[in-house]
């Protein structure tokens, strides 16, 4: 049996973390191909709907990454996001989503190394948890 390969939906803010992913590429830092990236202008753009949708769709993991506190291109977007993410993260774990399915990070556009390291960490954590089984909207089975 081949090893389980998770699918991780990754939201990257355009100014910092997307740039960090670009830099990780320029630097040829290798990490497993489990992520599917969605570029957003700011981590503050990421709504709870997007994260819930990803889990409902069957994503094994979700990762949201933005600029470091203070570095936000839009001044305060990531500060508001931080509160939303914390409350949402707590609630998801509270209803039984395993710790380690949802990840958040602050990665600046100069931190290609950190990007690759966090990517590896996220992928490894989600891989260990195995396929997601909760919060998935299953299509009605045809009899």
């Amino acid at each position: 049996m081949s090893e389980f390969e998770p699918k991780i939906i990754t939201f990257l803010c355009n100014w910092c973390s997307y740039g960090a992913a670009d830099l990780a590429g320029v630097s040829r830092f290798q990490y497993p191909p489990s992520m599917r990236v969605i570029r957003v202008p700011c981590s503050g753009r990421v709504s709870p709907k997007m994260i819930l949708s990803a889990f409902r769709k069957g994503a094994d993991g979700v990762w949201v990454s933005g600029c470091h506190p203070g570095d936000c291109h839009y001044i305060s977007g990531n500060y508001y996001a931080r509160r939303k993410f914390d409350v949402l993260n707590e609630m998801l774990e509270y209803v039984g989503i395993e710790k380690g399915r949802l990840h958040f990070s602050w990665i600046s556009s100069a931190e290609g190394v950190k990007f690759a390291a966090v990517a590896k960490d996220v992928i490894e954590t989600v891989t260990k948890l195995g396929p997601a089984k909760k919060f998935i909207k299953k299509l009605p089975e045809v009899a």
């Binding site: 590429g25 320029v26 191909p33």
Partner: peptide, 21 residues
């Protein structure tokens, strides 16, 4: 779609999976 910085450059050893991605 960024299939260079986020794909071919960082998944050199798994070309099939990089293509899937």
């Amino acid at each position: 779609v960024n299939i260079r910085n986020h794909d071919s450059w960082v998944h050199k050893d798994t070309p099939e999976k990089a293509t899937e991605k």
